[in-house]
């Protein structure tokens, strides 16, 4: 079954990506996590995302396009990346989610992917 791991990170974590003193540890943690999933052969697809400062949100209201700079909601944690993994059950998906570096500082939301339309 396919589950999406939505990797939510805090502002501090996003900052570590480019902080010269932190960047090595930051990416090292993610590479280890992604490497372990790749080795287990569970990754269907996945990407890291640029931080929320580069987000643009679009809504159509009364037929007019409203474009807003920034994420759709100003929350303490923002989506920093995602993976779709293929594992037998939710318990296995939660085990992977718990290994994500951002599970320690932010959160990981796990959701089943809708099966293809019949």
């Amino acid at each position: 079954m396919h589950y999406m791991l939505m990797l939510n990170e805090t502002a501090e974590e996003f900052a570590r990506r480019t902080d010269p003193g932190e960047t090595g540890a930051y990416w090292g943690g993610w590479n280890a996590f992604i490497g372990a999933m790749a080795q287990a052969g569970v990754i269907v697809k996945g990407d890291g995302l640029q931080g929320p400062t580069l987000a643009t949100t679009v809504r159509i209201k009364d037929g007019k396009r409203h474009v807003q700079d920034g994420p759709f909601a100003d929350t303490k944690e923002q989506l920093g990346g995602y993976f779709v993994i293929d594992v037998p059950d939710l318990d296995a998906a939660l085990d992977w989610a718990a290994k994500a570096p951002c599970a320690l500082t932010g959160s990981v939301e796990v959701r089943p992917v809708l099966p293809p339309m019949a």
Binding site: M1, L90, D91, A92, D95, P112
Partner: peptide, 11 residues
């Protein structure tokens, strides 16, 4: 059912 919880003993 929808989330497929594991029917087995925990690790």
């Amino acid at each position: 059912r929808e989330l497929r919880l594991r029917f087995a003993l925990p690790e």
